[in-house]
């Protein structure tokens, strides 16, 4: 891009005389601005500016072609009456409620299990971490295959075990469960890596003292390890909650919101409103509420973590 040309400015560095020092400071000014300008233009131009515009759009009615019309709080009022939106919120909540506990508890237990030196450990870790690179499109196709009612391995295992065949992604009451399972497949490795790093900082002297005092392995884990990795837990909970609220990709590559709307999540609904119905104003209003809800939840979780951390003896 043309911008990179501006970077070559700071070629004149001077000697350390009095006047030279001033030019040096001047040149540092110029160099600093030139160094950060390209990245700042891209990131702020595509981050702050559209966010401000979205605020304006949320107060307008606009289909992208005609003149936008200022409607005040109409979009927000419409949201309160929109039963499809409420349904989408429930679907998102269901997904979050199923995903979060397994993700956090499973990730911690998996990290604890992987935190030892036995044979094949490298292999185990690789197998659990590698789904990290699978995109939603890849994961979605795998979900469609593995949970396919006819050729899928899950139903075939069920048949061997004498269990009834299931519809999975084609069944409104099961589709969300399949999405949760596939998300866990992709993301448990990430949580595990975070916890594995945190487990390295757990005080071994404390664990050994507790063992000498006769604490069982599960007591040591619950009363020493779990409290000591609390900062990691806070991060994982916040990070994964945000991911849950924003679920879109996997829905797009598997069910497209179906069957009969059972997997229409908030962001999927928002996308439909904006880019299928061309309700740019209404879509922006939904996006704003989602953003605010996410921020508030993050702040609450951070506050809880701070208070908990404060109560503990250092």
């Amino acid at each position: 891009m043309a911008r990179s040309a501006t970077v070559a400015v700071p070629e004149d560095a001077s000697t350390a005389t009095g006047a030279g020092r001033r030019t040096q400071r001047r040149s540092e000014q110029l160099a600093g601005m030139a160094f950060v300008a390209p990245a700042v233009i891209v990131i702020v131009g595509l981050g702050i500016f559209p966010a401000a515009w979205a605020t304006l759009l949320a107060l307008q009615k606009w289909n992208g072609f005609s003149e936008p019309r200022f409607v005040g709080a109409d979009n927000f009022e419409r949201m309160s009456r929109d039963t499809d939106l409420v349904a989408a919120a429930w679907h998102t909540l269901l997904y979050t409620g199923l995903f979060m506990p397994v993700s956090v508890v499973g990730g911690l237990l998996l990290a604890a299990a992987l935190n030892r030196r036995i044979r094949f450990m490298g292999l185990y870790r690789t197998a659990i971490f590698v789904p990290y690179v699978a995109s939603a499109a890849v994961t979605g196709l795998l979900a469609n295959f593995v949970f396919n009612p006819e050729v899928g391995v899950v139903n075939n295992v069920f048949r061997v075990l004498g269990l009834p065949q299931q519809g999975w992604l084609e069944d409104p009451s099961q589709a969300m469960v399949v999405l949760v399972i596939m998300s866990l497949w992709g993301q448990l490795g990430f949580v595990t890596v975070i916890y594995l790093a945190a487990l390295q900082d757990v005080d071994t002297a404390c664990l050994e003292a507790a063992e000498v005092d006769g604490a069982s392995a599960s007591q040591r884990f619950r009363h020493i390890t779990v409290p000591q990795v609390a900062p990691a837990t806070a991060f994982v909970v916040i990070w994964q909650t945000i991911q849950c609220i924003q679920l879109f990709d996997l829905v797009y590559t598997t069910t497209r919101g179906g069957p009969i709307g059972a997997t229409t999540t908030l962001v999927y609904y928002l996308w439909e409103q904006a880019f299928r119905q061309l309700s740019f104003g209404y879509g922006s209003a939904i996006a704003w509420v989602l953003f605010v809800v996410t921020m508030v939840m993050t702040l609450v979780l951070v506050a809880i973590q701070r208070r908990r951390g404060g109560e503990q003896p250092a």
Binding site: I43, V44, L46, G47, I48, F49, P50, A51, W53, A54, L57, I242, Q246, F248, V267, L270, W271, A274, F280, G283, S284, A287, W288, L290, F291, T294, M295
Partner: peptide
């Protein structure tokens, strides 16, 4: 600050 702003808020104006 942009790290806190989710894609769904940005996608329509962008």
């Amino acid at each position: 600050g942009t790290i806190m702003i989710p894609i769904q808020l940005l996608m329509i104006p962008t």
